[in-house]
Design a protein around this nucleic acid. Structure first.
Lengths: 206, 206, 206, 206
DNA sequence: CATGAATGAGCTTTCATTCAT
DNA sequence: AATGAATGAAAGCTCATTCAT
């Protein structure tokens, strides 16, 4: 369903969704290549397959495109994360599965992740908060899973910290690829991070 | 000594260094506020206390300013990190000290850290590599310290991974402050991260 | 009867007239607020109660709307002016009545008058002439009335000049309201202008 | 001295004045031809003899140009009006001289007058008021002259009304030239208007 | 007849960079 | 060495108009 944080002149919501998807796809391709600021609205229109006039029928400002892109990426990450494991039955095994899926997801969506974290800052306060809340939600999912999975009790803060660490280690695979991906295969990276994670939680490898 | 990656028309190296320091200071203040792309060269000149013409006597392009800024921040981080502990006598205690200092440093220099990691992407390939090498160097320092400090042997890759984790956990204090700094004091953050670090390395708290 | 200076794709003349009246009403409301140039065709369509596509079924260019508006205003002024007095029986008394009516009319239709005189210039030559001829006609009516009313003979040119003066004094009530309407009530304005008019024509107040 | 209602990036006030004069001259030429809204900033720059970038060194928005133009025209009218007669020694003869000069001035500056009264409406409230105050001042000059010149006393309101009438009759020579200038020479126009003016004031022609 | 999505020329404005003084 | 006026490519955005449905 088309995002209604962003105003469109076009009424047909089905069309709005379709066009915005084209737009998001086109914009991501361009943002990957040159970042938000160096991409022009004309380029976005062309890459999306329509004219500049049409682009502006579906958004109001260039920033709207960025918002749509960030929002779409978050939703995609979340959807895939939710589908990746059994969140209803917490267990160390399922936690491991979640973490592994998350790392694989970050590998899959490297470029999108880089775009998102590097450009959200360009959103204005309100929109930025809206988007960051989605991150908060996902961290909370993981947080909850951690607390429910562990055999022993864990302090609330500790669970939150670990959840954040996992998140950042996932993102780091994308952001620091120039450093990490020369030294590690994805498999090795996952395996070693998982090892240290379990170790730090004093859990014997299953 | 003035950075000679960037070409200046002015010969007097002392003057070049002085002017560039003014420029870096001014630019950082502005980048903190509005980011690199939204800051104009005119503003940088004014904030630095000289004219736009003079600015261009000491650099060649706007990107040069960004480079100078990133470079200066890295140097500052490195200097302070080096001064913060006894790197010559590796020990778990010294490792802890280094890690703690690093986290405190990241707290101190939050804004600069954010600038750096959010804007390096705007540097062109060659310059970016030059800057990222400085990051590599610092990670290497930590890596080496880890390997030398631990009572038991640690795989080369593992040390590198831990070093990266520490780095990213430090940066995360700055980048995710909207999430972390509501839940943790710096002290608590350091304490818990250190706890998990030692735990994951199977070291009993000293 | 719908104005056939402006071409319409729609055949049904009754409908054309109905739609154009909606359009004129909508456009006047908008022109009052923001002038012709700052009003968009989309706004005119919306304000008129139909779609942009429909708007263009009844006109060919945006300028057509302006023409229709000016034309309608002139017709309205003329209709009301004609109805306001007994033009068939010239007399000083009737002349006075006409002048008073005209001033009251200008007060009533201030905004419309302002629109018309401020935007006609945007019409292209031919249409502008068509519209200005209506003004000429009205001045001629007054001119004729003056010549027929006065006890003594008056030079042709003089009658024309006086007719123009009266017209402009009426418009001035609308255009210079920021200056005049602070100092005069409409009644006082009419009374004093009439006084000077009669005086200049050497007629004793009836 | 350069108008400081409008902000300029250029510091050299002499230069600012020079460039703005070029700009005003260029803009008037264009506004005469096509009006404010149909004239582009690029055209103004080209006509003024400099680049679009330079234009914007001396103004902030397109509206600034319009303001500068209106302001300059008013100042010119006022200067010429002040120079045209002996304002210090009121007398019917001098009043006649003033009126005649004013009419001649309106003839001379027809195009400018048309621009001004047709485009002031596009200024925003504050600037418009600033400009209209200049009109008020001039009307006040005339008003004062009328009161001081007449042999008999005249009511305050009446003097103001007569002053306004004279003003509007002057402007009408420019605005209604399509109607008046076919029937009257300037000389005749002045002569007849003066005749009716004196008549209405019950003054015997000198 | 009515609709409204699509178009793209064209607008105002910005800003990195140069260069004469 | 320092200045700041000049430049113009290029950006974001608007809007009159068309035309398939």
């Amino acid at each position: 369903m088309s995002n209604n944080q962003v105003v469109s002149s076009v009424k047909d919501t089905g069309l709005v969704e379709k066009r915005r998807n084209q737009m998001i796809k086109g914009a991501i391709a361009l943002f990957k290549e040159k970042g938000f600021h160096r991409t022009t609205t004309r380029e976005i229109a062309r890459e999306s397959g329509f004219s500049i006039g049409t682009l502006y029928e579906y958004i109001r400002t260039k920033e709207d495109v960025l918002f749509l892109v960030c929002d779409a990426i978050y939703d995609q990450v979340r959807d895939r994360l939710e589908a990746s494991a059994d969140w209803q039955n917490p267990s160390v095994a399922n936690l491991e599965k979640v973490v592994e899926s998350f790392f694989r997801l970050m590998d899959d969506m490297q470029e999108e992740i880089i775009i998102m974290y590097q450009e959200v800052k360009s959103l204005k306060k309100k929109t930025k908060e809206y988007v960051l809340n989605k991150e908060r939600d996902m961290v909370a999912m993981l947080d909850k899973m951690i607390r429910a999975s562990l055999p022993q009790a864990i302090a609330k803060q500790d669970a939150a910290l670990i959840a954040n660490n996992i998140f950042v280690q996932g993102q780091m695979w994308a952001f620091r690829r120039w450093m990490l991906q020369k030294q590690f295969t994805l498999e090795a990276y996952i395996e070693r991070q998982m090892h240290f994670l379990l170790q730090s939680l004093a859990i014997d490898k299953v």
